[in-house]
Write a protein that binds this DNA or RNA. Structure first.
Lengths: 218, 218
DNA sequence: GTCTATAGGTGGATAGAC
DNA sequence: GTCTATCCACCTATAGAC
């Protein structure tokens, strides 16, 4: 029986993704990545020009397809309400499937002067963001959503909840009085259902048309 | 006329705060901080034990009094609705007054394994968070807020909006189609007013005062 | 392709003059 | 208190053997 050896290029990218997310760009060393990937650190320079090229590659691999997936999830819905719910709950699934994404994205935002991946992010994200705005505008035209809301602000309020929850994930247990353990995936989904309901209630023009609220509490 | 020389200890803390927020802990060097503060880098070791002690000092200086101010702002209000509005709009003022706070806080969250200031943050923030939860519970008991909402989740949704907006501030201009310029303070306040209204609409038991309570199950 | 060895530079921290 | 000079560890990146 032989153990299948993973392609070194992929092992390097995997290790780099993990470490950059955990420790940041400056806090991660080439030797650490090599060690974690099970290869000699000099090999990284065979596959990538330098540390920053590797970092950019990590980000593009992670982000590409993300915005596309987000839009696809919204497209399936029949009306704006359903689309909002699909969007918010989809956020949770996408972030669960890419555990390092929120940290890396936020580091990029916060390090914006470094801007290792300026273009990559803004290109992909701006598209998704304006799709959410259009969705809210459509709901407003249909009389389902309140027209007093500025669509772009409402889009931000809607998106913020899940992102914030994932960011704060390590601290959430402490805040919610459940000890230092990191909340399990099911808690993240439960919050996603709450967040969708919260946004829909805030958007709703008429209370009775608000989608059912799932508190997540059995 | 003599120019008042700032106390070097304060200059060092100011420069460190700026640089740690911009570049992160690992990305900032002692020599950079010294240079930015206008003193020799060796002097940092006269005032602070080491780099990490300096970092902790920066965080405590920034955070101390923050939770207290948050609670004070809420206490002035007469009912839960007013308190929520005071809280959210107060968030904006507090973050405007401490421009480096959001970045530093999020870095801490994201670097939680490093946890330079674990205690400092969780102690201060957990208190504020549970005050928000109590506020929402009070509104629910008074029949003003929907009881289907899990108070802790609702607190997170309420708080998330402004924090996210500040974090994304450098990218907000691009997302909102207003070019690369960083949004002015007035835009931040405008969003604060929106966010308070968004949260209140989501929390409200009967938006029209006369409307029956939505059971959430059509 | 993958490794060893190492160059060249920089970072945190200290010793000690003034 | 504040500076100069410097040590040592470690980091990125390259040269070159296999």
């Amino acid at each position: 029986m032989t153990i299948t050896m993973p392609a070194p290029r992929e092992s390097i990218l995997d290790a780099a993704e993990r470490l950059f997310a955990r420790q940041g760009y400056a806090g991660t060393t080439i030797k650490q990545i090599g060690g974690d990937a099970g290869v000699n650190s000099a090999l990284l320079y065979y596959y990538f020009a330098d540390k920053e090229a590797l970092y950019r590659e990590v980000l593009t691999r992670l982000i590409s397809g993300l915005a596309a997936e987000g839009k696809r999830r919204m497209r399936g819905a029949r009306d704006p309400r359903e689309a909002i719910r699909a969007l918010v709950e989809g956020q949770v699934e996408m972030l669960l499937a890419r555990p390092h994404l929120p940290k890396l994205l936020v580091r990029e935002l916060v390090d914006h002067q470094a801007m290792h991946a300026q273009g990559i992010i803004t290109e992909h994200m701006a598209g998704l963001f304006s799709a959410v705005c259009d969705l809210i505008r459509a709901g407003q035209r249909a009389g389902i959503f309140r027209t007093e809301l500025e669509p772009r602000y409402a889009a931000i309020s809607t998106i913020a909840q899940v992102v914030y929850f994932f960011l704060a994930r390590p601290a959430i247990g402490l805040l919610m009085g459940q000890g230092p353990a990191v909340p399990p995936d099911e808690t993240m989904r439960e919050f996603g259902r709450h967040a969708a309901g919260f946004a829909l209630a805030a958007l709703a023009a008429h209370p009775n048309e608000a989608a059912p609220i799932d508190t997540g509490n059995p």
